[in-house]
Write a protein that binds this DNA or RNA. Structure first.
Lengths: 222, 222
DNA sequence: AGATCATTCAAGCGACTATTTGAATGATAA
DNA sequence: TTATCATTCAAATAGTCGCTTGAATGATCT
């Protein structure tokens, strides 16, 4: 305001970008993409101390990417709107397109093999309805309980070695997790394919599925 | 790579965001949106020293948002692809939606009055063909010479006071500049309306016009 | 009221960032 | 080859950021 308006505007845009410029905050946003959460829960999921988590959240709030409300003595944070999700997604897409390092990491997640193309959500919904596919939710049990694709099995990465032999090698398995920032589904697919199973990832994760208005089930399924 | 892949990925995404987190670099990107440029030209346009500009450009290159090539002894930088432009645009949209400060600055640019809605580019193209509008390019002469909307007049903000009386008060005037980050068109419209003229902004700027494959003229027009 | 709980604030530290300065590089032109 | 030019590198500085620690706030519960 004191300086020229052009500089002041750029300063504000930079503020939003700066909010996205720390891995810890991207991690928080990924959690918030799954639904609103309190500070303590977020700190636990992201391995931050409570104070540190709170400060990151305030920075996100100042940038307008998240908003908060009070619920009793807890502070509940949530993404301001779906544009925040779009911004995170575009950030990821640009990074995947342009940074060799990202490609290398993603290749590493597939155990060096060529990973099969992910299944898009619309196709998956159709095949789910037809019963021609097994869906695997590769998130921690509490996130599964808070909402999952109807009919999905829940298995963490640690569980997969155990349940892999019980899965039908002829039916296709589709794994999903928190979303595009989450690597669980990549790792699950790699593990399942090592067991000779026909596994692929779903594109995106539960937040994207929900965003499209598709059905979400609560509590445990089968 | 040494740490877990999830953290490594977030680090890379954060790198891209960090590249966008300095006003100086957003300014450089705005310039590059107009077309490829050498280091010296960019430094002059953005009021950076050459060394400083070069370092910012290298940071942008590391993030993958821009690429460079050598041309004789000059280094030419350009946006990697149109996703960079999309990312900048989304950043601006999120900031405008969520940050009260941005709204305040934009209101200040319109001199407190309600600014009229901007004209979209398709409509402008149609009205230009019909000759029912005067188009004003509010960028420095060198940028105008490097490409502008066919039939546009070139006038810097300083020129506007001089030429305003010569413009037809009955015909609508549409001003444009470098793009959504640029404030010249806002300021020009405010100045023109103070002169009682019927002026509006074009949505976006020349980079967006060009991106849509519309015609661009070189050198001076009428 | 006092006690408790979730979150935020404040201060301090080490690490990183932006900028300046001056020297080094790498390509061209004489 | 040497001279010139555009750009990059290297070192130094001031300022900011992220994280930790411990105290302060604000809302609930007894």
């Amino acid at each position: 305001m004191s300086t020229n308006p052009k500089a002041a505007l750029l300063e504000e845009y930079a503020l939003v970008a700066r909010a996205l410029s720390a891995p810890a905050r991207l991690s928080l946003l990924e959690q918030l993409a799954q639904g609103e959460r309190g500070v303590e829960a977020l700190a636990a999921k992201t391995d931050l101390t409570i104070a540190n988590c709170s400060q990151h959240l305030q920075q996100l709030r100042r940038s307008g990417l998240v908003t908060s409300r009070r619920d009793g003595k807890a502070m509940i944070y949530r993404l301001t709107d779906s544009k925040t999700l779009e911004l995170m997604d575009l950030l990821r897409i640009v990074a995947e397109r342009n940074l060799a390092q990202v490609e290398r990491i993603l290749r590493g997640l597939s155990g060096g093999e060529d990973a099969p193309e992910p299944v898009n959500r619309k196709d998956l919904a159709a095949r789910l309805a037809a019963g021609s596919v097994t869906v695997l939710d590769v998130r921690p049990a509490d996130e599964f309980a808070a909402g999952h694709i109807p009919g999905a099995l829940n298995a963490t990465l640690a569980d997969i070695e155990r349940i892999a032999p019980t899965l039908d090698p002829d039916s296709e398995i589709v794994a999903y997790c928190r979303g595009p920032y989450c690597v669980y589904a990549h790792q699950a697919v790699t593990a399942l394919r090592r067991h000779g199973l026909n596994a692929r990832r779903m594109e995106g994760g539960l937040p994207e599925w929900r965003e499209e208005g598709r059905k979400v089930a609560l509590r445990a399924a089968s």
